[in-house]
């Protein structure tokens, strides 16, 4: 279902959602924001739509009538790295983790406000447009923290902060994937290596250390955010 009214250069969003009320509200809210929209109500139709029309971003409901939404992610990830945002209900942390591990970029828990949705869409689009981090720009900044990944330096305001090797590796991984949710298992595997899968508390302990060193108020973090039951996200703005 194409939207002829929108600017042809506006980003194309694919909404794969079987619930008519949600679909209607998404369609209306995003159209107002100037996006072009295509819609599908089944997984099969969704995959076909994505292959044919190459949308800039996909909003995917996990509970589709014909197949698990995760199967859509897997088949799309076979050939494309376009951003996928998963829509799911509270209490379905397991399927969210599965979706993220299968390659989804982000998730939103229903019910969500349009403000939150738009923020996630824009941030995903920005990331997709950005060249791989390790290219020219290896400096980063969030809040009063800035640093240089290549020089392995981190500053809070203008004071350099000493991080241990693992703390730095963890931070670097979060910086490279800023605004994305990284699951516990992914962080463990990347920072501690594949043999550490049974020690999920490592990530939590090191994250707490990072917060103590970087956040103003470690018990109410503003940037190093916990996605309870799933993992962590570095909020860059």
């Amino acid at each position: 279902m194409n939207n002829d009214m929108a600017n042809p250069s506006a980003p194309l969003i694919a909404i794969i959602e079987d619930e008519a009320p949600i679909q209607k509200f998404l369609h209306a809210s995003l159209q107002v924001e100037g996006f072009r929209i295509i819609q599908a109500t089944t997984a099969k139709e969704g995959v076909r739509l994505i292959t044919q029309q190459h949308p800039a971003i996909v909003l995917l409901d996990l509970g589709l009538p014909d197949a698990d939404g995760i199967s859509v992610i897997s088949s799309v990830r076979g050939w494309s790295s376009l951003p996928i945002i998963v829509l799911s209900a509270r209490g379905e942390e397991k399927s969210k983790i599965e979706a993220l591990d299968a390659g989804a970029d982000d998730y939103l828990t229903k019910p969500f406000g349009v403000g939150e949705l738009l923020a996630r869409i824009r941030s995903a689009l920005r990331r997709a447009a950005r060249p791989p981090v390790d290219g020219e720009d290896h400096t980063f900044r969030f809040g009063n923290v800035h640093g240089d990944l290549a020089a392995r330096q981190v500053f809070v305001d203008e004071n350099e902060v000493k991080l241990t090797k693992l703390e730095f590796d963890l931070l670097a991984l979060l910086v490279r994937n800023r605004d994305r949710v990284l699951t516990h298992q992914y962080l463990l595997k990347e920072v501690w290596g594949p043999g550490s899968a049974n020690e999920p508390h490592y990530v939590r302990v090191f994250m707490a250390n990072l917060r103590k060193k970087l956040e103003k108020n470690p018990s109410r973090p503003q940037y190093l955010l916990t996605e309870q039951g799933i993992g962590y996200r570095l909020r860059s703005s």
Binding site: L26, V32, E33, P111, F112
Partner: peptide, 18 residues
């Protein structure tokens, strides 16, 4: 949940975007 999500979303949409 579905109708609630639609109501909440639609209301927020009005609030934010218009």
């Amino acid at each position: 949940r579905t109708p609630l999500a639609a109501i909440a979303g639609a209301a927020s949409s009005l609030d934010v975007s218009i």
